[in-house]
Design a protein around this nucleic acid. Structure first.
Length: 274
DNA sequence: AACACCGCCTGAGCGC
DNA sequence: TGCGCTCAGGCGGTGT
């Protein structure tokens, strides 16, 4: 499920878009787009006629910046995908395509999202993007002990719930929350305000390490994730706990325990995590 | 105010 | 073979 490493891998694979002009846009499902001013979606909202100048990411959100200042945010939700298909190329999965951008040179970009938890958000300016993203916590690649501490010390929630809160830090979802807690040796159900500062330092470092490693592996592909070229990631091969409940811990052999925390399936090692 | 919880949505996987 | 059920989870809205 697309979290920070998957969105970053997607962003990197989409970089060939930079400098390209969007000749036309076809929107096949209007209800996947939210316009900044509530107006009816027009092709220009979706960057028709503009040249892509930059691809930015904050947490799990991807922003396509255009030369005239317009911005389009893409959120993948659970099953969203962007595919960049060369002229004459075919799309392997052509169902649930909600929007199609035709580039000069006839290459095409597709947004596909079967479950429609994701979507597109139009913004008029870079200022509007910055304002929208100011509601998010710092990008999880930049998380530090003090950043975690600022939120943790005043919260009685489980530490896993804190990691999943995008206003605390942006980019961690269920997979990398469990993996980061395992690497840091902290139980996911621990109360946030009962973690020590050294523990929060260790946790912040674990989050950065886990996310960086997953980016290097091109993200985790559990079922659907693929980058813009359709390539799967391999980070799932390194998962230590996610999806591995009732199997032996690779470190100590203790059977991993499954539970539900913050309404999310959770797996931890009762021996390695305290 | 802080936090819990629901519902959205589809396809995979399962049991029968 | 095929049906119906359960599960997966990001996130906005609502409830406590």
């Amino acid at each position: 499920m697309p979290e920070l490493p998957e969105v970053e891998s997607l962003r990197l694979s989409l970089l060939p878009l930079v400098g390209r002009r969007i000749a036309s846009v076809r929107l096949h499902r209007a209800d996947i787009v939210t316009s900044h001013d509530g107006s009816t979606i027009r092709p220009r909202h979706l960057l028709a006629g503009a040249t892509v100048t930059e691809l930015r990411r904050r947490g799990k959100q991807l922003a396509i910046l255009a030369g005239d200042g317009r911005v389009l945010i893409v959120h993948l939700g659970m099953s969203g995908q962007l595919f960049l298909v060369p002229a004459g190329g075919r799309l392997s999965k052509a169902d649930h395509i909600h929007s199609t951008w035709s580039l000069d040179g006839r290459d095409r970009l597709f947004f596909r999202d079967p479950r429609r938890f994701g979507g597109l958000w139009t913004l008029p300016t870079l200022d509007a993007l910055n304002e929208r993203w100011s509601a998010l916590g710092p990008d999880a690649l930049e998380v530090s002990g003090p950043i975690l501490a600022a939120a943790a010390q005043t919260s009685q929630r489980a530490i896993k719930a804190l990691l999943l809160d995008q206003t605390v830090l942006a980019g961690v979802g269920n997979i990398y929350a469990d993996e980061s807690l395992f690497l840091s040796g902290i139980r996911p159900g621990r109360r946030s305000d009962r973690l020590s500062l050294p523990e929060l330092d260790i946790l912040a470092k674990a989050v950065r390490t886990v996310l960086r490693g997953a980016i290097r592996a091109g993200g985790s592909t559990l079922r659907d994730y693929a980058n813009a070229s359709g390539e799967a990631g391999t980070a799932q091969q390194s998962h230590a706990v996610y999806g591995l409940a009732a199997t032996p811990c690779a470190v100590c052999g203790t059977i991993l325990v499954g539970s539900v925390i913050a309404q999310r399936t959770t797996v931890h090692c009762p021996q390695c995590q305290r």
